[in-house]
Design a protein around this nucleic acid. Structure first.
Lengths: 196, 196
DNA sequence: CAGGGATCTTGGACCGAGTACAAGCTTTGG
DNA sequence: CCAAAGCTTGTACTCGGTCCAAGATCCCTG
């Protein structure tokens, strides 16, 4: 992919990244609420209307995934063998995800602790990966095992969330991964053996 | 309490409940987005400004707890003996909560599935109980056990969330409670024995 | 390479949520 | 009964978000 992109598509991607970049810069300088969409648009040499063509709301400019990111998820999900126990697959996927996008998660965490309002919409509008993961789980859940499957998914996610809140961005990133592994292992100790 | 309330306080409570009541009626008739704050205020014979004196945002009128509700939590939290294992306390508290406010949870669920935007702010601005529970947990967590404690809390919450998404409002409420018990038990099977 | 259709950008008008504030009204307590 | 404290209200404003029509840009086919 990425080869046969016409001028139009290239410009779109460029505009997307320019807006995102400007937005992150301004926001990390001044804070989310102190930067208006108008300013971001102006900084990116784009009209306010166009901003909303690219991002469905102000929060999205922080939390939407880069177009290439989604490719990474899909590979991550597709790479798990069909007969792997769900819990193992989930831990593998989530650890792979945080390994790749931990830096981004750290930014998100900072923003969330700064402003709870941002955090709110973050969970709702933001986490496309979580939505995709959820879909993936339900798709590979055999009838009758919905409860166990959903429970595993939610528990694993909760474990990652726990690791994220306990980790301090000043500590080395490896610590976060260790923490995540520990949380997943502990939380899953009663679940991992279930036949899903 | 409730006895020595002056005229002023009584009027405030009355206004609060009037606004809430009108809001819930209009919203359940027409949907969240189709009702403006102005309409709610008008319906409750109150100015728009006053609405925002009582509720910090539009979502709050749906998700804020009734002043009496908070009393119930506090009793619930205070009623657990200090030396009870954390997991047992958590399941007891959460089951007590959903038993009492299950109806409200069902309304919330309906609203959330209707409009994701509402769901977003619901999690952030809405769940005062969860915040209180979180504070209660951290307060009684001995130093060194933070990880296990947070993990239990998040896992237990995830279990309730799972039960809530799996339950259909058409089914009897007892089913929901059974489901919640099952989820808690399964999710906690590896955690319950930890010494916290 | 010309030109018509598809797509994207833009400005302007508009709506609703949320904030700030000054002015007026009601409760309270002395 | 009166003054201070507390609430309510209208007004005016900012900002996020939507809608739309007009213009610019790209793409594709003849």
């Amino acid at each position: 992919m990425g080869k046969a992109m016409g001028l139009r598509e290239r410009k779109k991607l460029e505009a997307w990244r320019s807006i995102r970049e400007c937005a992150l810069r301004l926001i990390s300088e001044r804070g989310f609420d102190a930067v208006s969409v108008e300013e971001i648009a102006e900084e990116a040499n784009v009209s306010r209307t166009t901003f909303f063509n690219y991002f469905s709301c102000k929060e999205a400019v922080v939390f939407d995934p880069d177009p290439l990111e989604t490719q990474f998820w899909q590979d991550l999900l597709a790479s798990r063998p069909d007969d792997e126990p769900l819990w193992d697959a989930l831990t593998g996927i989530l650890l792979g995800y945080v390994t790749q996008f931990g830096d981004r998660l750290a930014i998100h965490k900072r923003l969330k602790t700064e402003s709870p309002a941002v955090a709110a919409s973050a969970r709702g509008a933001g986490d496309h990966f979580q939505a995709e993961l959820r879909a993936w789980v339900t798709a590979r859940t055999p009838a009758g095992s919905e409860l166990d499957a959903q429970l595993m998914l939610n528990t694993a996610t909760a474990a990652i969330g726990t690791a994220l809140t306990l980790w301090k961005p000043t500590e080395p990133f490896e610590d976060f991964l260790d923490l995540a592994r520990t949380c997943l292992h502990k939380a899953g100790s009663g679940l991992a053996a279930l036949p899903v």
